[in-house]
């Protein structure tokens, strides 16, 4: 399963959030790095079928995500864990995941069964009947992760999955994502945390001011780093790529 972005661009009124991004998601885990406002969420939203890009195409196994004839089929293969987890406070975790799986085309009964499975997988089994208003921020992140897993996507897009998680929760999340790579799911995850990249990714995409600055193996990015820098090689390479001196 390949996810291909061809000259993808998006403009929000007077802000060019993304411009001419071309990349193909390789099997395994690809990290998406960038500072705030770099265009990471816009790119993930476009790749996930949530946001129609103002330019370019998103192709899933050659199927255009925004073409009427192929959209449904393409969407079945892709799932997005959004950055915001503002689910209806009155819904239980199980209901949220079931509902979102149903929206992805999973029949209602199967969606409920699958929701229970994935909530167990993310460690929320005992809390699946708890309303969202009573779950902590970290738990809500795990619900968001569970809903992305529920329709069994072949391409999983994770928008800052470890944000707001405590160290133990982060470790658990990293293990879950690592497990997905083994099952053949292609993962694209955005993160501010370089450790996530080092722990999980084989490839990395660096966005800065809406444009693609780097796309290649993590090792290649690390190789660009300054050996004498106080930061890790990947972090140092990242700052070098975006032309910032902050990391030195």
């Amino acid at each position: 399963m390949t996810l291909e972005l061809a000259e993808v661009g998006h403009r929000y009124r007077d802000t060019q959030a993304l411009e001419g991004v071309t990349a193909t998601l390789a099997p395994g885990t690809t990290a998406l790095l960038g500072v705030n406002g770099a265009g990471k969420s816009t790119m993930l939203s476009a790749a996930g079928g949530v946001l129609r890009p103002s330019a370019g195409r998103v192709l899933v196994d050659g199927m255009d995500l925004w073409s009427r004839s192929t959209r449904k089929e393409a969407l079945r293969a892709v799932a997005l864990m959004p950055q915001t987890t503002a689910f209806p406070p009155g819904m239980t975790a199980e209901e949220v995941v079931t509902y979102l799986a149903w929206l992805k085309g999973v029949p209602r009964r199967a969606a409920r069964t699958r929701a229970r499975e994935v909530l167990e997988e993310v460690g929320l089994g005992p809390r699946m009947r708890t309303r969202m208003s009573r779950l902590s921020g970290g738990m809500a992140r795990r619900v968001a992760f569970a809903q992305a897993l529920a329709p069994r996507p072949r391409v999983l897009l994770l928008d800052e999955p470890t944000t707001g998680l405590d160290p133990a929760q982060r470790h658990a999340m990293v293990e879950l994502v690592r497990g997905l790579s083994v099952t053949g799911v292609s993962v694209l995850l955005s993160s501010h945390v370089v450790e996530d990249v080092e722990d999980l990714a084989t490839d990395v995409i660096v966005l800065h001011e809406g444009t693609l600055r780097f796309w290649g193996p993590v090792g290649d990015l690390a190789a660009l780093g300054d050996a004498g820098a106080r930061r890790s090689p990947v972090e140092s390479g990242f700052f070098r790529v975006i032309g910032s001196e902050v990391g030195r």
Partner: peptide, 15 residues
């Protein structure tokens, strides 16, 4: 309630 999360998911849904 429906926005933002469920609306975004519905846009990327197949229904």
């Amino acid at each position: 309630r429906y926005h933002p999360s469920l609306a975004a998911a519905a846009r990327a849904g197949t229904r």
